[in-house]
Design a protein around this nucleic acid. Sequence first.
DNA 1: CGTTCGAATGTGCACGGTCACAATTGTGGA
DNA 2: TCCACAATTGTGACCGTGCACATTCGAACG
Lengths: 339, 339
Amino acid sequence: MPADLPKSRAPSIRDVARLAGVSHQTVSRVLNNHPSIRDSTKARVQQVMEDLQYRPNRAARALSRGTSRTIGVLAASSSQYGPASSIAAIQDAAREAGYYVNTANLTSVDPDTIEAALDHLMLQSVEGIVVIAPQMRVFDVLEQLSIAVPYVTLQSTGKLNEHGLSFDQISGARAATRHLIDLGHRNIYHLAGPQDWIEAEARMRGFLDEMGAMDVPTTAPILGDWTADFGYYAGRELLRVRDFTAIFSSNDQMALGLMHAIRDAGLSIPGDVSVVGFDDIPEAAHFWPPLTTVRQDFPELGRRCMALLLDDISAVSPERRGAIIPELVVRASTGPPAF
Amino acid sequence: MPADLPKSRAPSIRDVARLAGVSHQTVSRVLNNHPSIRDSTKARVQQVMEDLQYRPNRAARALSRGTSRTIGVLAASSSQYGPASSIAAIQDAAREAGYYVNTANLTSVDPDTIEAALDHLMLQSVEGIVVIAPQMRVFDVLEQLSIAVPYVTLQSTGKLNEHGLSFDQISGARAATRHLIDLGHRNIYHLAGPQDWIEAEARMRGFLDEMGAMDVPTTAPILGDWTADFGYYAGRELLRVRDFTAIFSSNDQMALGLMHAIRDAGLSIPGDVSVVGFDDIPEAAHFWPPLTTVRQDFPELGRRCMALLLDDISAVSPERRGAIIPELVVRASTGPPAF
DNA sequence: CGTTCGAATGTGCACGGTCACAATTGTGGA
DNA sequence: TCCACAATTGTGACCGTGCACATTCGAACG
């Protein structure tokens, strides 16, 4: 065995060059698939790279090229199923495209936190940013800082449409609402997400639009915080009056809490109250009763989002942005009203 | 206004130096908080940095220092609640410590995929790796590749204990099992996780240990895949014989599917069958019935993991590694057996 | 056989920091 | 006043790669 000398430094492009008997530039060309390299030369260089376990140094490359091949993800509530799935898909898509991903989590939404997170990303000279922190304020801050790199978001906002890509939350919410109306319900509550959230806003608008279009009187939506705990407490409050036969919840977790409260009150689902959720998390089919909900394909969204951003970065801009239509999944938590 | 000339290039350390009337090295010292800098000089340099909106270039720094201040995360099933929470906590902890985080997802467990993911991380010259892909094979590959950087894992393995930090899954599983035995159950099934998973193995061992210690005869555990869907189908199969009064499920999702199947069979929980889960995901309290389970504090685990890795990187090694004891949360899905 | 031209390869420097070392300044004691 | 010594600042090289440009090679052509 050829006594593998314990070089203290990792092999560089010049080490490879020396051993292959070529110039460092030729090695660089092999690395970057330059067309005019003789096949025999290329093979020899690649052999040496293999022998030396050569790895190109990313920092050096970034420095010299002035580009980092890194994109940043700005995410809120990243431990929830939806965002987490999208993030995973984004990372996979990025890796496939030869990009690296760096994630910054937002623990709160005050401007300082947002700015700090953005700073963190900019410090790494990211070439683009994906925002999965669908709060209005985040976009205010983004606009204000006039970010120097392209960014896209998973949620569409009225004013930032040029950066947006999204599920058509509104039509998803309308489909859910329509389903309840078609079943005969006329007294329907909406349990919405937090005020500041774009998704919450869109779903609420879908609900109100459909109710309006079908001429069904509405009550003011209740603003929740996405958690099952909140759904439970909101359900308890609502049931003190019990002037409704159906509830459309802005996400599946709150719907779960709601159903818990309804059962606690001795009522049956969907006999006394129908419940519709939103997202179709993998567990929704096994809730009791199995939840009627609106399915979103988060991984697909993540992938498309990434494609969009990569286009932006390379400035091709083929107008691929647009909405994905979510699908209503009818299970056992909805039925006709009792009266 | 002083006509902000649109420099094509971002300001460098030398630009700052020129405007502040010092050498570039002095600017570098200000950046790195070198002790011997006159306060007045420091202030002047900082003022110029502020004026120029100077940002140090990370690639250049990494290149010259030979260190990237980046750590890698190797994750499987990162869209699930547990891993996602831990990842978020790791990222926060890393950011606080001035490190950057790069995540690679494992979509499958074949060695090639693992190696590709590791390659991806190594290419960025990460200084350490956190493994949240608790499959045995991942560690086999890790050992085989003799990774040049320190790595830690969230799960303890017998043979890799020096890299491990974990919940004491075994004692958690023993507590859950003991709870069922104390209630009077003698015919208890265990729905385990996939064969290859370290956590699944540990929980199974905990179950078997406790059953053995209490002299209760056991049947062979069923190997699942963590999903609610699997729990449902496993439940359906088990109920064809129905020679048990309790089931201990390796995670909450499978427990949810199980309960779904039990209800479908017209049986009551916990009247006919008791169910215990593991993890205490936020929804578990709102399942029907609310699930008795074992709580794990994932964010805390992520933070401690990060602390451990940073110690490893700086080679302090204060022997902080160790287990966190999870806690049994008794809710309504468990009770004494009917016969 | 010289010329021409494209393919293949080499040379030197720039990128933006840090490091090792040199140079300068300031301070107190002999 | 001069010197030793610490505090402060400057100089030049270097990290590993890519780029612009120069050079050499090789084949086709007149």
